[in-house]
Structures are given as C-alpha cells and as structure tokens.
C-alpha cells in the first residue's frame, strides 16, 4: 500500500522534482552555482537547471568518479557545484572521490542522491540506494539531509546551498505525501515535532514520515498518545529533541527506508544510550537487498509500512 493512504494525505511532487525546481531558482539567484552531471539529469532532475543555464552545466558522461573530482576542482576555484546521481551510484561508485577530493579538503560541493530506498520499485535492487545515509554520515565534515516531502525538500536544498562546505541531500523517486502544510515549520539541523504525544515517540525520516503519522493515528484510536518526529537532518544531529523525547515518552521506534546499519536508528541509539537510555525498536530494511515490484508491494513485503511501526510500538508498551 502507498504511504499515507490510510490518512488520505494529499500526494505532492517527488522530492527529486522539488529539488530540481529549487536548483533552477537558485541558479537564477547565484551565478556561481554550477552543476556537474553523470548523464542522469532527467532522472535526478538537474535537467531543469540545464534548460536555463547550459553554460554552467557539465555532463561528463557515465563517470561518477570524474564527476566528483571535477566538482571538487570547480569548488576549489570558487564555484558552488551541485552533483547528482542515483543515491547508490553517487555514494557507492564514487565514495573514494567523495572522501578524498571533497570531504578531506572540505570542498564546498553539494551531493544529491536520488532514487533512495526501495520505493523506486520496478528498476530493482541494483538501482536502490539503501546504504547511502550510512556512507554519507561517514564522510567527516559533511552535513546530511533526508527530507520527506516537497516543501521541506525546497527548504533543505536552499539550506544546503547556503551552507559553506560539503553536504549530501537524499531525494526519492515517487510522488511523496505532503507532510509540511500550513503552519508547520522546518528548520535545517532541527528535528520537527509533527505531533505531540506522551506514551512513546516514533522517529522517522524521508518517505517513512508518512508511515509514522499513520501509525500514530492507529494507536491514538486505542488511546495511545504518540509523539512523531521528522528527523530530516542527520548531520548535524539534533540530539536535544531526541533526548527530550526519550525522557518524556520513555520509548522510541525508529523507522527509515535504509539498511539497519548506519542509518537513523544507529544515530538515535548512540545518542540516547549516552544521555538517557530507553527501549528502542527499529523498523528498516534490515540486512538485505529487495527486488523488482511496484513500490507499494515492496514496502509491504519488506516491512516498511505503518503496520510494522504499530507492531513495534505495541512491543514497547
């Protein structure tokens, strides 16, 4: 089933498209913004920037390593490059270059991994970015953001462009339910409390934020008051909000579209174990590759829906 369906959450644009549209706006505002591409611009949506600014767009062919190095060189000469690919190719194919040519010298390069998680669907496991956040967080000095919807992706893109230093933005393929409507604020580096609650806290990022809200609604019907946090910024990590949730609600469920290793669950566990240990349950992809199917079928089969969040919450209570 599609994420957000039980709540009839309105469906917005894909986060990759919201990123692409914002990048085009930023291109008009900042003449130093340049884009390097490894021939996936119409998937990662930097094609929107290309249309308006072809002179500041460099397609280096299907060569992620070179894309990273070229961006590093542009940055060291004062340009503000953005690069993108599918999250798994961006991180896994060019990791040494991200480490050596970008993170180590601290180059002002913004890296976008699109097609994150298993919700890309039919293209199958070779294209699924399920380890990108763990890898991005392992690059010293990087800031790392995984927004959940259209509006927050626009703000994340702008926040990253304003940040002077390396950064990673995770975007997704499918249209994403709208989480940030009127009156909800989103701030880079600050976890958003989407719903207050006292009995336990569900911590989510990306597409799984919708599942967290759905689970909270199911549990509310049983009289269980669930706090929901959107932890979109992995680095720098908003420890205070997560620690307060542990102190005030006494139990956490972390749900994410990522392998168990190195994702949000790891960071949350490390944080609360030092400051205020509480029981935690983890809902994620575990330690496996998925397969080809529709996004809804995959999320159901691999246990990434509100149902698993509800089950995990009941275990805690």
């Amino acid at each position: 089933m599609e994420i957000g369906k039980t709540l009839n959450l309105p469906v917005g644009k894909a986060t990759r498209l919201a990123f692409g549209e914002t990048l085009r706006e930023l291109g008009a505002e900042d003449p130093n913004l340049v884009v390097v591409d490894a021939d996936l611009n119409n998937s990662t949506r930097t094609d929107l920037f290309l249309k308006d600014f072809p002179d500041r767009f460099f397609n280096v062919g299907i060569a992620e390593s070179n894309m990273v190095g070229v961006a590093a060189g542009l940055a060291s000469a004062g340009k503000k490059p953005w690069i993108s690919s599918f999250a798994t190719f961006m991180m896994s194919n060019a990791y040494d270059q991200l480490r050596m040519s970008v993170a180590f010298p601290g180059c002002n390069v913004k890296v976008v991994g699109s097609h994150c998680g298993i919700s890309i669907g039919e293209d199958g496991p070779s294209q699924m970015g399920i380890e990108d956040l763990g890898l991005a967080c392992s690059l010293p000095g990087f800031v790392v953001v995984a927004p959940c919807d259209e509006a927050s992706t626009r703000l994340a893109t702008r926040a990253l462009h304003a940040h002077d230093g390396p950064g990673y933005l995770r975007t997704g393929r499918p249209n994403a339910p709208i989480i940030y409507g009127e009156g909800v604020t989103w701030e880079f580096g600050k976890a958003t409390t989407l719903k207050e609650g006292d009995d336990l806290t569900v911590i989510a990022s990306g597409l799984m934020v919708g599942a967290a809200l759905e689970a909270a609604a199911v549990l509310a019907a049983d009289g269980i008051s669930v706090r929901v946090l959107d932890v979109h910024t992995f680095k720098p990590f908003d420890e205070a909000t997560v620690i307060r949730a542990a102190q005030e609600t006494g139990g956490l469920v972390v749900v994410e579209e990522h392998l168990a290793q190195g994702g949000l669950g790891s960071i949350v566990a490390m944080t609360v174990s030092r400051h205020h240990p509480v029981p935690i349950r983890f809902v994620n992809l575990g330690d496996q590759f998925a397969e080809s199917a529709t996004p809804g079928e995959l999320l159901d089969k691999y246990g990434l829906s509100y149902r698993e969040v509800v089950d995990a919450a009941r275990e805690l209570l």
Binding site: A72, G73, D96
Partner: peptide
C-alpha cells in the same frame, strides 16, 4: 589539492580549468 588516493588529480584539474574558463 589534497591527493594521495591515486587517479583523482586530473579530474580536479579539469574542474579548475573549467572554472577559469567560466570566469
């Protein structure tokens, strides 16, 4: 440029050359 993982300097140099040309 920081180097030491071999094979990366020419890409960095190309980025620099493109920046000079843009400016």
């Amino acid at each position: 440029a920081s180097t030491g993982s071999l094979g990366q300097g020419l890409s960095i140099g190309l980025g620099m050359a493109l920046a000079a040309r843009l400016d």
